[in-house]
C-alpha cells in the first residue's frame, strides 16, 4: 500500500514535468525511486550486438544505463517508449555519450539476434541488444529489475506478450536508481538525466 501511494504521489508530481516544465534544476525527479533500490550489477545477459559477449548491468564510472524489456513485434508501446529515449538523449546533448541503452527481448523465439540489434539501433546508435534463449536466465534478470513478462499462444495460435512498459535507469555501480513509467515524455527523462549528471 505504501508503495502504491508513493507512486501515485510521484505521478502527480511528474505531470507538470511531462508537460512543459521550465526545466530548471529545482524540478523534482520525474522517475520513481524504489526503496530499497534494487542491485542489478551482478546480473548479466548475452549482448547480441556484440557477438553474444557477456553484458553486465554495471555501466562503470561516470556512466548510466537505460534498460528496457520489450520485443520487436511490439508495434505500439515499444517504439513509443524508445522514441522518447531517443529524443531524451538528443536533449541531454554532450552527456548522452555517457548514457548507454540496452533492450532486453522478452520474446527470444521470434526476435533473432540480428533483428533485435537492428531494432534497438534504429533508435539509439550503439544500443545493446540483450537476448537469451534460456528462460531461467531471463527470468532471473527480470526479477532483479522487478520487471514482469509472459509469452503465450492463444487458441487462435497467436502469440500474446505482456511486458513491463517501464524504463529502468542503472547507475555506474549497478544500482537501479530510477524507473520511468510508460507515457513519460522525452523532456521529463532528459531533465532527470541532466539533474543526475549535475549531481555527479
Amino acid at each position: 500500500m505504501k508503495l502504491r501511494t508513493a507512486v501515485l504521489a510521484l505521478l502527480t508530481m511528474a505531470l507538470p514535468l511531462a508537460a512543459c516544465g521550465s526545466g530548471t534544476a529545482t524540478n523534482p525527479i520525474a522517475g520513481l525511486q524504489r526503496d530499497p533500490a534494487p542491485e542489478v550489477g551482478s546480473l548479466s545477459l548475452p549482448d547480441a550486438s556484440a557477438g553474444g559477449a557477456d553484458f553486465t548491468f554495471t555501466p562503470g564510472e561516470g556512466k548510466y544505463l537505460i534498460v528496457y524489456f520489450g520485443y520487436t513485434s511490439c508495434p505500439d508501446v515499444c517504439p513509443t517508449t524508445l522514441s522518447e529515449v531517443k529524443k531524451a538523449l538528443a536533449r541531454v546533448g554532450e552527456q548522452a555519450k555517457n548514457i548507454e541503452v540496452a533492450m532486453i527481448t522478452v520474446d527470444p523465439n521470434r526476435d533473432s539476434d540480428e533483428l533485435l540489434t537492428k531494432y534497438v539501433q534504429t533508435f539509439v546508435k550503439g544500443g545493446h541488444a540483450l537476448r537469451t534463449d534460456d528462460d531461467t536466465t531471463l527470468q532471473k534478470v527480470a526479477k532483479g529489475f522487478g520487471s514482469g513478462y509472459s509469452v503465450t499462444t492463444n487458441a487462435k495460435g497467436e502469440v500474446e506478450v505482456t511486458h513491463s512498459g517501464t524504463l529502468y535507469l542503472v547507475d555506474p555501480a549497478g544500482t537501479l536508481i530510477l524507473e520511468w513509467p510508460f507515457g513519460l515524455k522525452a523532456k521529463a527523462i532528459a531533465d532527470d538525466l541532466v539533474t543526475l549528471f549535475g549531481k555527479a
Binding site: R34, D76, V77, F145, H163, S164, G165, W180, P181, F182
Partner: peptide, 17 residues
C-alpha cells in the same frame, strides 16, 4: 493496449495489447 498495476513492487505494471 492495457496496463496492469504491478504485483512486484515495480513502478509500471505489465502492458498487454
Amino acid at each position: 493496449t492495457m496496463t496492469m498495476t504491478s504485483d512486484s513492487g515495480a513502478a509500471g505494471g505489465e502492458m498487454q495489447m
